[in-house]
Design a protein around this nucleic acid. Structure first.
Lengths: 143, 143
DNA sequence: CTATTGTTGATAGCGATTTTCAATATCATA
DNA sequence: TATGATATTGAAAATCGCTATCAACAATAG
């Protein structure tokens, strides 16, 4: 399970002459099994339950490696803290965020993407990337 | 000059039973006279030049009041630090940000706005607000 | 097996922001 | 304009999220 992601991470470590430590494998497993936009602290607490010896710094260090290997993306949201999302098998997307329950939904709208490009160019910008977050109340919370 | 904003701030303080301190007036003046997206630290340093006794905490406290009064908006950007922009007389807008020089440009595209609403609704969301930042290289930096 | 080199956990440090607190300023009212 | 209740201030300590340091330790090549 999650064989491909494991392979990607192993290969990345090999290329960089880094070692396959137990902690790295543990953190990867837990990261892969939780398909949410976790903060480093949330991940730390979950990892701690299974592997109490793991330190805070190792979580951050491993998250950085996961990002570098292309498995993970760091996102900064309005509360200021970073959240980490799965990148493998996920195309570019923006976020719909529920202001009640905090859930994240990945969305894409090719028409908006096109207009964003156009808007940038209209202002003489060479567009590189963008971020778009739509905040609102999700179906469940609205009831 | 900036009479209306002063009035708004005074009224806000009055309604909340807060006092018209010298520091608050000073900080408001300087904030109003600089039409840039400043960080708290940048504002602190500018205020310090004129009023060396002013403390850091007072800057943050006053910025919060300015936001609450509707004169100011706090924006969190990718680098994690907050920047403050004028809100009075500025309609809703998004940002074009140059990744070379760091300059900010305010933009609006009603078609994008419309599609954002539509996209949220398509996913069962009751839309409240959004943020959109387009990053790229501006005309000047491209040359 | 052993040497080399990378990794770890604990902790100190950092930058941004907030809180605490005693001294002080504001302002309604006497 | 003096007074007193209450809000405000500056300084410093505290907090938060994250990074750097470092001595002990683990992974891997030879």
């Amino acid at each position: 399970m999650a064989r491909e992601e494991e392979k990607i991470f192993e290969d990345y470590l090999a290329i960089k002459n880094l070692k396959q430590s137990e902690q790295r494998k543990e953190i990867l497993q837990i990261f892969l099994n939780i398909d949410k936009h976790l903060t480093a602290n949330e991940l730390y607490r979950i990892v701690q339950k299974k592997y109490p010896k793991v330190g805070y710094a190792t979580i951050y260090r491993t998250l950085r490696l996961l990002c570098e290997s292309g498995l993970c993306r760091e996102l900064k949201f309005e509360d200021g803290t970073a959240r980490y999302e799965h990148l493998y098998g996920h195309q570019h997307h923006d976020h719909l965020i529920c202001t009640k329950c905090g859930r994240f939904f990945e969305v894409v709208d090719s028409e908006i993407e096109r207009l964003q490009e156009k808007l940038a160019k209209q202002h003489g910008f060479y567009p590189e990337r963008h971020r778009m977050e739509l905040y609102g109340v999700c179906r469940k919370c609205k009831k």
